[in-house]
Design a protein around this nucleic acid. Structure first.
Length: 421
RNA sequence: GGAGAGAUGGCAGAGUGGUCGAAUGCGGUGGUCUUGAAAACCAUUGUGCAGCAAUGUACCGGGGGUUCGAAUCCCUCUCUCUCCGCCA
């Protein structure tokens, strides 16, 4: 969430920028500033009273020591009076703070000023496109057919075991999945990321830290009995490693494989066919924590890194900058990566690389010391490198031949085979 | 799941009602010494909020209570550890 001080300092600019996200902030900002001013006045008088009360208690202490106990009664009463007043102010102050917090968590992150206006994904801007569109043909089989022909994925049994959206990978199909995971992680480590294997369930505090709770609560599976959430992405546990920390030597670069669990309530039809949209899928995530002045440099480094993975896999892809209407609640700037599905003849999102600036850090209380030794909020960034299912689908479709499916070269040392037939 | 113990600053660990934001050790930072390093010695070293600052105030797992005064007493919740049971 945003900080009150930043809102105060940059009110007009923020109002303007938030319009890109179709968010009208002016009224809320005014209210916040007013509440905060009230808070300060109350806090001041509360602290003055507390200070008095403290001094009186000290006095009583020394009176007791000198043995003059009767004399203490007067001060005791005085202290009781002060305390009553303090309590009232305390109560008021807490209720104002709550009010401020409740408003703050409703306000999305301010988009970067380069974010284009737009209502939906139609207005997203293509930053990098394929040099030449790959050929599509009626004869090409979709990945769900290929998966069946070569016995790589059994959707029906997954359905039987858990439900729709929970595929069962089989034999070489499972191995290919595992190869992709290993390859991605190794590639990330090579780029300087430290590998983690995180918990797949998180508590509410962690879910709050990354902005998944309460904003996207409905998207997460919730284990009622133990009050835990299944992670929708490794970003949640990984970023929370640094919750409540004052870190140094930035950037911190982390990578983690995890399954991701998403309820995807309301999704249906063609979009959910095969591997297109799942309740459980595999993903390798990258997270960076960076100094604010360097975070956009880092964002582009991450974009280049993800590009290099897709280059390695020889998949046709494009990079898109999300417009305001498509940008997530917590993100300031996001680039999406899409690979082309030659059989479905459409683009599939396989990665999303975002700079959250200080939005998550403020929730996480993740800070660094600046040159003046003052604690400042870090910037957090993350991206998929990569989400598996659609990459998997694209690989099957584009590498299909009469004799089987060719395994991309970079994966062969992980699969141990170069052909699926 | 049953029984017991515990939760204090980056870590370890004192502190059972009054000047305790908290001893001490380790670690960190700065310095002296040294060709350099180590060692030794000296100094410094928690966080939030308010304030230009001086400073004020809050925080010893969370919440509530007793008291003029709570890290210290009481209640409650959460978590951790040990033993037993179960188990990959």
């Amino acid at each position: 969430m945003l900080t009150i001080n930043n809102i105060k300092e940059n009110k007009n600019q923020y109002v303007k920028l938030l319009k890109i996200k179709k968010f009208d902030a002016e009224h809320l900002f005014d209210k916040l500033i007013d509440l905060d001013d009230q808070r300060k006045v109350i806090q001041k008088s509360k602290e003055d009273l507390q200070s008095q009360s403290k001094k009186i208690s000290e006095k009583i202490g020394s009176i007791y020591k000198s043995g003059n106990i009767d004399k203490a009664e007067f001060f005791k009463n005085e202290s009781i009076n002060i305390k009553e007043k303090t309590k009232k102010l305390q109560k008021k102050s807490l209720s104002i703070e709550k009010e401020i917090f409740d408003i703050l968590i409703q306000i999305p992150n301010v988009p970067h000023n380069s974010v284009p206006f737009g209502d939906s994904d139609k207005e997203n801007v293509i930053i990098k496109d394929v040099a030449q569109m790959p050929e599509t043909s009626e004869n090409l089989k979709a990945h769900w057919d290929l998966a069946k022909i070569y016995n790589l994925i059994d959707f029906e049994i997954g359905n039987k075991i858990a439900g729709t959206g929970f595929p069962l990978y089989v034999n070489k199909g499972a191995k290919l999945q595992r190869a992709l995971i290993s390859y991605f992680i190794d590639k990330n480590i090579e780029a300087g990321y430290t590998e983690y294997l995180p918990p797949y369930l998180v508590n509410e505090e962690s879910a709050f830290g990354t902005g998944n709770f309460p904003d996207k609560e409905g998207q997460m599976y919730h284990v009622n009995k133990d009050d835990l959430f299944l992670i929708p992405t490794a970003e949640v546990p990984i970023t929370n490693i640094f919750r409540n920390k004052i870190v140094k030597n930035l950037p911190i670069k982390c990578t983690a494989y995890s399954p991701c669990f998403r309820r995807e309530a309301g999704s249906y039809g063609k979009n959910v066919r095969g591997l297109n949209r799942l309740h459980q899928f595999e993903k390798v995530e990258i997270v960076q924590i960076q100094y604010p002045e360097k975070s956009y440099e880092t964002l582009h480094e991450m974009v280049n890194h993800v590009s290099s993975i897709l280059d390695d896999l020889k998949l046709p892809y494009r990079v898109i900058q999300l417009c305001g209407g498509d940008l997530s609640f917590t993100s300031a700037l996001t680039y999406d990566f899409e690979v082309f599905s030659v059989a479905q003849n459409k683009w599939l999102e396989v990665s999303s690389v975002s700079n959250f600036e200080a939005y998550q850090s403020n929730r996480l209380k993740l800070r660094y010391k600046d040159i003046n030794e003052k604690n400042k909020l870090c910037h957090t960034l993350n991206g998929s490198a990569l989400a598996l299912p659609r990459v998997y689908a694209a690989i099957l479709e584009i590498n299909q031949t009469k004799n089987g499916i060719k395994v991309p070269k970079v994966l062969q040392k992980y699969t141990g085979f170069d052909m699926i037939s």
